[in-house]
Amino acid sequence: MKNLIVLKVITAVLIISIIFSLFSCMNEDRIEVPPVKLEHVNGDYKGRLITVQGEIRGEKVVDFKIKKDTLTFPEFPIKEIVKAVVKDPIKTEAAITAMGKVKYKLNYTSVVNAEKNWVELTFVPKELELQIPVDGVSKKTIVTLVTKQKGYFAGLDHTLRFVLAAEKITVNGTVLSPFDAIYYNFPYCIKI
C-alpha cells in the first residue's frame, strides 16, 4: 500500500514537472519582433517573379527599387505582353530585342499595422504604354495593370510580397480579344 502511494506521488510530481517545462519552453520560443517603420520598405530588392497566364507559368528573378512612395522596375517583364500582341514566336523575340529595357513605376501608399511588425502597401498602378515593332510598323499598346490585393513588407525578415495583373491590352485602339490576364506574382522579394 505504501509503495502505491509513493508511486502516485512520484507520478504526480513528474507530470507537474513536465507541464511546467512545456510552459517555460512555449514562452522561450516567442521571438521578439523589432518594430518596423515606413522607411524600412525603401531600398533595392531582388524578387522571385512567377508569371501566370492561363495554363502557362514562368519563373524568373527580377530587380526593383523602392523609394518613398514608388516602386520602380528598371526592366519590367514584358515578354508575355508582347507574346499576346505578336503571335509569331520569332517576331516576338525580335520585338522584345528591339524594345530593350522597359522601365515602369508603380505608386503606392503605405501603413504600419497596429502591432508594428509589417507594412501594408496599397498600389495605384498606371497604364503601361508600349510601342511594339512588328514588320517595320509600331503597334501602340496600352496595358491596363491592376492590383486586387495589398502588398506586405514583413518586419521580421525584411521581405516584400505583392501581385500585379495585366487585365486588358489595347492595340492601336482595339481591345485585344480573346486575352487571358497575365498575373505577376512576387511571393518573396528580399532587400539587397
Rank of each mutant, 00 (worst) to 15 (best):
T72I: 14
I78D: 12
G58I: 10
E75H: 14
V82E: 11
V52R: 13
L49E: 04
E75Y: 11
I81T: 10
T51G: 05
L49A: 03
F64H: 00
Q53C: 05
D69P: 00
K65A: 07
I78L: 12
E55V: 00
T70H: 02
K65W: 09
P74N: 08
T70Q: 08
V62Q: 11
P74S: 13
V61I: 07
K83N: 12
I66H: 12
V62A: 02
L49M: 05
P77W: 01
I66E: 04
G47W: 08
Q53N: 02
L71R: 04
I78W: 07
V61W: 09
K60Y: 04
I50L: 10
R48Q: 09
R48T: 12
V61G: 04
K68A: 10
V62T: 10
T51A: 10
K83G: 01
V82W: 13
F73C: 09
L71H: 00
R48V: 04
K67L: 03
K68R: 06
F73L: 04
R48W: 10
F64K: 09
K79Y: 12
E55H: 04
E75I: 06
E80L: 08
G54M: 14
K67E: 01
D69C: 00
G58M: 09
K65F: 07
D63L: 06
E59D: 06
G58S: 10
L71V: 04
T72L: 08
K79Q: 14
F64I: 09
L49P: 02
G58Y: 10
V52L: 06
K67Q: 00
K65G: 02
K60P: 00
P77C: 10
Q53H: 07
K68N: 14
K68M: 04
F73G: 08
I50W: 01
P77G: 09
T72R: 03
R57T: 15
